[in-house]
């Protein structure tokens, strides 16, 4: 008997994306450029985070016609974003047969208190996290893949570094605990005890852990892989740069050869300008941070 949508089948696709780069694209042409550059998947959305940030207003799920156009243009997996808590958008994305749904803080949250009940869906979900507790709560809700939130659309890696360190330090701490300490840890992390126990036993998350939010250069990609990311999402960093094709190839190369600084150096040459970067403190002062959404 064939069984679909099991936990193993849902996390299985994320397992296959490891060591790869998932690129934000806004149309079929960009999707083809991403695929040609070696992206292992694309994220279909109407505006990259840098533009969402610039334009303001409410950011919603993308137009289904645009998602379909991208699905027809490439053979690699196509992901799409739903607003936090907006399960009707997720239902629409599932009916379009997207390969993964990103319940994303980059879009304007639809529910201030609740995330989507991801276990009730057949399509797998990826969710962002700024620390271990957030990651474990999302896994408890059924997320089959976790990514750092970073601070999308800034070209500034500092927040992704913080989130990845918070998550991996938290895992090491759990793994060093005695069993009777885990209930207290679950309370501190505001996370389900069974997920906490599993992480403590395995010494890793039960789902793949990727980096997202702020990658702009090949060296950024190599940094995050060395800090424990199992793959990278790149949003504005590619198509907001001067030469997206070359930068996309270079970030793919640096994600594979992250342990070889010579290869990262080679990949970083003649790329043109990176996307312009934003200071996190200035953004925070304006109340413009996205990462606090849906904790």
């Amino acid at each position: 008997m064939a069984e679909r949508a099991t936990f193993r089948v849902k996390t299985g696709l994320a397992e296959m994306l490891k060591g790869g780069v998932i690129m934000d694209v806004v149309d079929a042409d960009q999707a083809r450029i991403a695929e040609d550059a070696g992206a292992c998947a694309v994220m279909a959305l109407e505006r990259v985070p840098a533009d969402i940030r610039r334009d303001g207003g409410v950011a919603r799920m993308s137009n289904p016609a645009m998602i379909k156009g991208i699905q027809e243009a490439v053979t690699i997996p196509v992901m799409a974003k739903a607003r936090i808590g907006h399960f009707a958008e997720a239902q629409v994305l599932q009916s379009l047969e997207v390969d993964y749904i990103d319940e994303s803080e980059v879009l304007t949250p639809a529910d201030e208190a609740n995330h989507i009940d991801k276990l009730s869906f057949e399509v797998p979900f990826v969710c962002g996290a700024t620390n271990l507790g957030e990651a474990l709560r999302r896994i408890g809700e059924g997320a089959a893949m976790i990514r750092s939130k970073g601070e999308a659309g800034t070209g500034n890696i500092v927040e992704a570094v913080r989130h990845m360190r918070e998550i991996t330090d938290g895992i090491r701490e759990l793994a060093g605990m005695r069993r009777e300490q885990l209930a207290g840890a679950a309370k501190d992390h505001r996370a389900p005890l069974d997920v906490v126990q599993e992480v403590a036993e395995q010494g890793r998350l039960p789902v793949p852990l990727f980096c997202a939010g702020g990658i702009a250069t090949p060296a950024d990609a190599a940094l995050m892989m060395q800090l424990g990311a199992e793959g990278n999402f790149v949003g504005s960093g590619i198509f907001k740069s001067e030469d997206p094709e070359r930068r996309a190839r270079a970030i793919v190369e640096a994600t594979t050869h992250f342990q070889d600084p010579g290869r990262v150096a080679q990949a970083s040459m003649a790329l043109g300008e990176a996307m312009p970067g934003l200071e996190i403190e200035a953004l925070a002062a304006e109340g413009g941070l996205l990462q606090g959404r849906g904790a």
């Binding site: 064939a2 679909r4 047969e97």
Partner: peptide
């Protein structure tokens, strides 16, 4: 077999 929704496991 199709996209991710059609992915499966079996004996």
């Amino acid at each position: 077999f199709g996209r991710q929704l059609a992915s499966f496991e079996q004996d």
